[in-house]
Design a protein around this nucleic acid. Structure first.
Lengths: 166, 166
DNA sequence: GTATTTTAGTTATAGTTATAACTATTAGAT
DNA sequence: ATCTAATAGTTATAACTATAACTAAAATAC
């Protein structure tokens, strides 16, 4: 039934092992992410996604839910859950646009801005330190590799697109 | 108050941008992972962690919960939730060890084994194809990079340890 | 040999997340 | 002008996950 040569089989097995290796790394990364987020929540009362959202709002200014969602790579529904939470703690404010009453803008409150000044890194200060200690070449190498993996896992949502209006 | 030179500031800003880039990749990866897992659940009725667990049991034979937990990088509590689910569907069986009645072994049922023969890749067949299409050099480059990131994010649980009994 | 500590597993709990279904509003077509 | 389609946001739902507290069993100390 199979017309594979021995070499094919060996090659396939290698590739399979490699795929298992990738899977394992991804699961370690996902879990580390989760654990770090919980540690962050204990430390400052915000989980990683919450902190990332707050930082994104600080960076983007008065921002709509959809734009925010695209920027931080969370579904709109998730962003709303997070914003509900942040608003309840008065770290952000929301209001409907007067031009288009479907859209909702979010902005930082003074409390939110103040919290950001004393917030640690979302991925953890330890990770940030380790990463900063790498050589510039190594850092960009890792970022390129991560980006390539992310692009392969979530195609289409990847880079800024090379087929934009020209 | 600050004794940073202009060059320091520029360097720090670069590093900060890089860190944001890493964060963004990680979030894209985590989300793609989640989305893929849900797609898998629709396709074969098992989420990615469930399928990975099943595959690990197939690979390891009769395996204890703790060993399984370490192998697939999920907390023991999570593994138990998954095993409860798989056992309820009769894909695996569990039984207590006779030697040590604390430990519980898990093994595949024929149904579980049968399901595995027609199961797709946990990370998605599309990803597996894209990855397999890369050059061998590129593949190992990416794996090395992912491993490095995982090690930085979850230190101590990393590689097999170079300080084992010699 | 009994008491303490360690180990394996389990349960309870609380939080994050995405999908799907829904509402409200605006833009577009005829 | 009205009817349809698209867009922004929201809500309901269901699943996964880790931590913490707990039980049971075995190993170790004295």
């Amino acid at each position: 039934m199979s017309f594979e040569t021995t070499t094919d089989k060996v090659t396939n097995r290698f590739r399979d092992d490699e795929l298992r290796g990738v899977e394992k790394c991804i699961r370690r990364i996902v879990r580390a992410n989760d654990v770090q987020s919980r540690a962050l929540a204990k430390q400052i009362g915000l989980t990683a996604p919450q902190l990332i959202t707050l930082k994104a709002i600080a960076a983007l200014g008065e921002v709509t839910t959809t734009v925010l969602s695209a920027h931080i790579d969370l579904s709109a529904a998730t962003v709303i859950t997070i914003l509900d939470n942040l608003e309840a703690r008065q770290l952000v404010e929301r209001y409907r646009s007067r031009n288009d009453r479907r859209v909702v803008h979010t902005r930082l409150t003074p409390e939110g801005a103040a919290l950001l000044t004393r917030a640690p890194e979302p991925m953890g200060d330890a990770f940030a330190r380790r990463f900063a200690d790498l050589s510039p070449e190594r850092r960009s190498q890792l970022i390129l590799a991560l980006t390539a993996i992310a692009d392969m896992m979530a195609p289409g949502e990847g880079p800024p697109k090379d087929t934009l209006p020209h």
